[in-house]
């Protein structure tokens, strides 16, 4: 397993729309393993393949406190949305920024698991928000897109400044 480098906003590669996975084989499972390790290391509660510059529809998530309940989603699709939830979100590709985003608070999804078998899952609250956040990544979308252009620009400047400081 390996820890992969995470792309950061406003990197254009984060705008790539990921392709569906054809078959869940050992190669895909190896990518999922690396992604999980990268996510735990960051630390984050969800990571989409797009963020590590792999443009296939793969997501890893773990919202448990003990970090022992990994969830693997391959080719996830949202089949049901209900309710409204507001939550402070952050993103490993937008480090150190937390903003309130409105999303559905209960969702039903269909996806393939680590074993390649299809399953459906009802999720609510944090897990529901996290899944929506990660599926956005696969579609080339970031949580900052939900903010006003002014706010988004300010975040962009702030991150550029941070990077400059880190480099010098």
């Amino acid at each position: 397993m390996a820890i992969l480098p995470i792309l950061e906003f406003p990197d254009d590669r984060l705008r790539t729309v990921a392709r569906p996975v054809e078959v869940v084989d050992d190669q895909i499972r190896a990518v999922l393993d690396d992604m999980l390790q990268t996510m735990y290391d960051a630390p984050g509660i969800g990571l989409a393949a797009t963020q590590v510059n792999i443009h296939q529809r793969l997501i890893v998530i773990d919202v448990s406190e003990e970090k022992n309940q990994p969830l693997y989603l391959v080719n996830p699709e949202i089949v049901g949305l209900q309710g409204i939830e507001e939550m402070d979100e952050g993103c490993l590709s937008v480090p150190g920024i937390y903003e309130t985003v409105q999303r559905a608070d209960r969702i039903t999804i269909k996806a393939l698991g680590y074993d390649g078998n299809v399953f459906t899952l009802d999720a609510e609250e944090l897990l529901a928000v996290c899944i929506q956040h990660e599926i956005d990544h696969l579609d080339g979308k970031l949580f900052v897109d939900y903010l006003s252009p002014l706010k988004r620009n300010r975040i962009k400047k702030k991150l550029e400044k941070q990077r400059k400081q880190a480099a010098s």
Partner: peptide
């Protein structure tokens, strides 16, 4: 996704 680091 990342969540805010827990305060004390």
């Amino acid at each position: 996704m990342a969540t805010k680091p827990q305060q004390k």
